[in-house]
């Protein structure tokens, strides 16, 4: 449904999207995960024909964005990162306007507006000015505005930014329902949990490059199957440990970091009892033990080199 190959987009000499490639199947919910400035909005803008590409090919719903932008525009819905609404008008007037632009009128327009207000749970607030809406209500209406003409593909650019957990889960539910009804969704976010919960597949993007791609398990496999065991050991025992560790499936030699031994092993579950036995034999205590299994958060941190906290 969406095919991106070697996409390059520059702002002057700055490369915002750098040879990006990915595919999204019909009916898929694809997540583009990346920190601020990663190039998510730029990518979506090219895919939705708002910005011309500087290289590569992009095909959306069977239409090439460069050669047939009109075809793309008819088939896509776009929900910008900003609240792209006329806040001095009512919710109903906003939806009516966007519907009119797609040629809806009369009772079909009326029905569609009602349907969407219902879908985003704003029926009671239809006549209210958008400027009086809460952040979550605005986000929901922003989403509805992109759906007026019943698109085949929906681009969602960080649709949950700046709203509370409850409002967020409402939106995620809505997106899931739309996807269940067959809508192909390209969803960008910098929240790992959202991508993890919501998306069938995830592309991690950083500094314009695709850092990893796949479903959750595939991504985890990409950082390897190793577990990390950390514990405190008297320094004089360290050399013995190095000699013994190879037998427990250790990957490389153990290291000492910040006063703790860091032992990377193929399977923590098997290595741990052996380690314990080794310590008991020497009458040493097992102090400050920590076992770390691979997870998406680590992956994300490794790939993007940035703590999530910085980006939220």
């Amino acid at each position: 449904m969406i095919s991106v190959q070697d996409l390059v987009k520059k702002y002057g000499s700055f490369v915002a999207v750098d040879h990006l490639s990915f595919e999204v199947e019909r009916g898929e919910l694809f997540g583009l995960l990346g920190p601020n400035g990663a190039g998510k909005t730029t990518t979506i803008s090219v895919l939705s024909t708002l910005l011309p590409a500087d290289g590569g090919t992009v095909v959306v719903a069977g239409c090439d964005v460069g050669r047939d932008p009109g075809g793309v525009r008819r088939r896509i819905g776009m929900v910008p990162q900003e609240i792209a609404l006329y806040e001095d008008l009512s919710a109903r007037d906003n939806l009516r306007f966007w519907g009119q632009l797609y040629g809806l009128s009369g009772s079909s327009l009326h029905t569609r507006v009602d349907e969407l207000l219902e879908a985003v749970e704003l029926t009671e607030h239809g006549r209210q000015r958008v400027s009086r809406f809460s952040g979550g209500m605005k986000r929901r209406l922003n989403l509805a505005a992109g759906l007026m003409h019943g698109p085949e593909v929906l681009f969602l650019d960080e649709p949950t930014v700046g709203i509370d957990a409850q409002a967020r889960s409402k939106i995620l539910d809505l997106i899931r329902r739309l996807n269940d009804d067959g809508l192909t969704v390209l969803y960008t976010t910098h929240y790992l949990e959202e991508a993890e919960q919501l998306c069938d597949r995830i592309g991690v993007i950083d500094q314009g490059r695709l850092a990893a791609l796949g479903d959750k398990d595939e991504l985890i496999r990409q950082i390897g199957d190793e577990d990390t065991i950390r514990f405190v050991l008297p320094p004089e025992a360290f050399d013995d440990l190095v000699a013994a560790a190879a037998a427990w499936g250790a990957i490389g030699d153990p290291e000492i970091r910040r006063g703790r031994v860091v032992l990377r092993v193929v399977d923590g579950g098997r290595a741990l009892p052996q380690l314990q036995a080794w310590l008991e034999a020497r009458d040493l205590p097992l102090a400050h033990l920590e076992i770390e299994r691979p997870n998406l958060e680590n992956l994300y941190l490794n790939l993007t080199g940035r703590a999530l906290r910085e980006t939220t």
């Binding site: 009109g70 525009r73 776009m78 910008p80 900003e82 792209a84 966007w98």
Partner: peptide, 14 residues
Amino acid sequence: RQNRTLDRLRIAHP
């Protein structure tokens, strides 16, 4: 332009 309603207009009609 800033709140992107112009982008929506552009997408709605070529």
